Computed example of a mutant assay.
Amino acid sequence: MANIREVAKRAGVSVATVSRVLNNSDLVSEETRERVLKAIKELNYHPNLLGRNLRRLKTKMVLALMPNVSNPFYARVVKGIEDVAHKNGYNVMLCNTDSDPEREKAYLDLLKNKLADGVILMASVMGKDELTLLAKNYPVVQCCEYIEGAGASYVSIDNFSAAYKAVKHLINLGLRRIALITCKNDFISTRQRETGYRKALEDANIEFDENLIKYGDYSFKSGMRAARQLLSLEEKPTAIFAISDIMAIGAIKALKEEGFKVPEDVAVVGFDDISFASMYDPALTTVSQPKYDLGCIAMEVLLKHIEGELEDPQRIFLEHELVIRESTVKY
């Protein structure tokens, strides 16, 4: 049986144009309408009327699921989501999952029960196959974090190259004993940032030392704990790369309390460029993510899925920037 994508290809138009013809939209020219209707007849295409009718019953509500609503990183992402949503007549329900599969499932039941039109997932804990099935039946976009190989759209950055650039900056300063403060989870950003860290060391012929990897949980206190563990080593690090700004700031706090100067004794780099990264003393060198744009574009892609304008999953990577401040270079 022919599908809408085959009709669009035969008529030489977009899927959205075929959808407009089926819905008797005035935005289609008569010549284009005739071409689409001819393709429909030639392919014997029969639209799913039940599905179309259900899609028209919109709630004008979308879900935004995040692992920790108190994490300041998500503030600008959510602002982008909300700005685009409100501009298009939608409201956003913020859902804190705490990375709990059961809580995530409970929120997704709102989507499945047609109490929301779509969902933006900022750090889903579901499996690849489960996410693929969800995205096949409902409008879904992953934002920031994404699951590799899943058949769902995502908007993110290249975490590998961002981490590589951050560590390369430390190496270029002549620092070689570079520690990593990371997290124990399955997020792709965590894996890619560690891989970028290791690759930068490898390319500089710096031997990897597993003693220089310590773990936190994205919190300020965990950054302090990890830094103190590093300072207890006989051969202390000369630099620390943390995969989040909050942990990096916690590390600086611990370093200062132990009498170490930043960056003279230990240089520190974070990741995210949250609002108070530039306000801390010393101001934090960090990888800046386009947080607001991540939210905006994720919502724009979700709206296209809701309207049936996208058939295939979208893979979108936005730019990142290493912002050099006083935690690595003394001005």
Results as ranks from 00 to 15, higher is better:
1 M>F: 09
9 K>N: 09
10 R>A: 12
12 G>E: 05
14 S>D: 08
15 V>R: 03
21 V>D: 01
22 L>T: 01
24 N>L: 04
25 S>N: 00
26 D>S: 11
32 T>R: 00
36 V>E: 00
37 L>V: 07
39 A>H: 05
41 K>E: 11
41 K>T: 07
42 E>T: 11
43 L>H: 06
45 Y>Q: 05
47 P>D: 06
49 L>P: 04
51 G>V: 06
52 R>H: 02
57 L>D: 05
57 L>Q: 10
62 V>W: 02
63 L>I: 02
67 P>Y: 11
72 P>N: 04
72 P>M: 04
72 P>Q: 04
77 V>I: 11
78 V>R: 04
80 G>C: 08
85 A>S: 10
88 N>F: 03
93 M>E: 01
93 M>P: 01
94 L>A: 02
94 L>Q: 01
96 N>Y: 02
96 N>L: 07
98 D>F: 02
101 P>F: 01
104 E>S: 01
108 L>Q: 01
108 L>Y: 00
109 D>Q: 13
111 L>V: 00
111 L>H: 00
116 A>N: 01
116 A>T: 02
118 G>Q: 02
124 S>K: 04
124 S>I: 03
126 M>C: 04
128 K>R: 15
129 D>N: 13
132 T>L: 06
133 L>M: 06
133 L>T: 13
133 L>G: 04
133 L>C: 05
134 L>P: 00
135 A>N: 05
140 V>N: 06
151 G>C: 10
151 G>Q: 13
152 A>R: 10
156 S>V: 13
158 D>L: 13
159 N>Y: 14
166 A>M: 09
168 K>N: 14
176 R>A: 10
178 I>C: 13
180 L>Y: 11
181 I>W: 13
182 T>K: 14
183 C>M: 13
183 C>I: 15
184 K>P: 06
185 N>T: 13
193 R>I: 13
194 E>I: 11
196 G>I: 05
197 Y>F: 15
198 R>L: 10
200 A>D: 03
201 L>P: 06
201 L>M: 11
202 E>C: 08
203 D>L: 07
206 I>T: 03
207 E>D: 09
209 D>H: 02
215 Y>S: 01
216 G>S: 03
217 D>T: 02
220 F>I: 08
223 G>H: 02
225 R>C: 02
225 R>Q: 05
228 R>V: 01
229 Q>T: 07
232 S>V: 04
234 E>P: 08
236 K>F: 09
236 K>P: 02
236 K>E: 06
239 A>F: 04
242 A>H: 07
242 A>P: 15
248 A>G: 12
252 I>H: 03
254 A>F: 06
255 L>I: 14
257 E>Q: 11
258 E>C: 07
265 D>E: 07
266 V>N: 04
266 V>Y: 07
267 A>F: 08
271 F>A: 06
272 D>F: 12
276 F>H: 08
287 V>W: 12
290 P>A: 13
292 Y>G: 10
292 Y>F: 13
295 G>S: 09
298 A>I: 14
301 V>W: 11
303 L>N: 10
304 K>C: 08
312 D>E: 14
316 I>D: 10
316 I>L: 13
318 L>P: 05
322 L>T: 03
323 V>K: 12
325 R>V: 10
328 T>Y: 12
328 T>W: 10
331 Y>W: 08
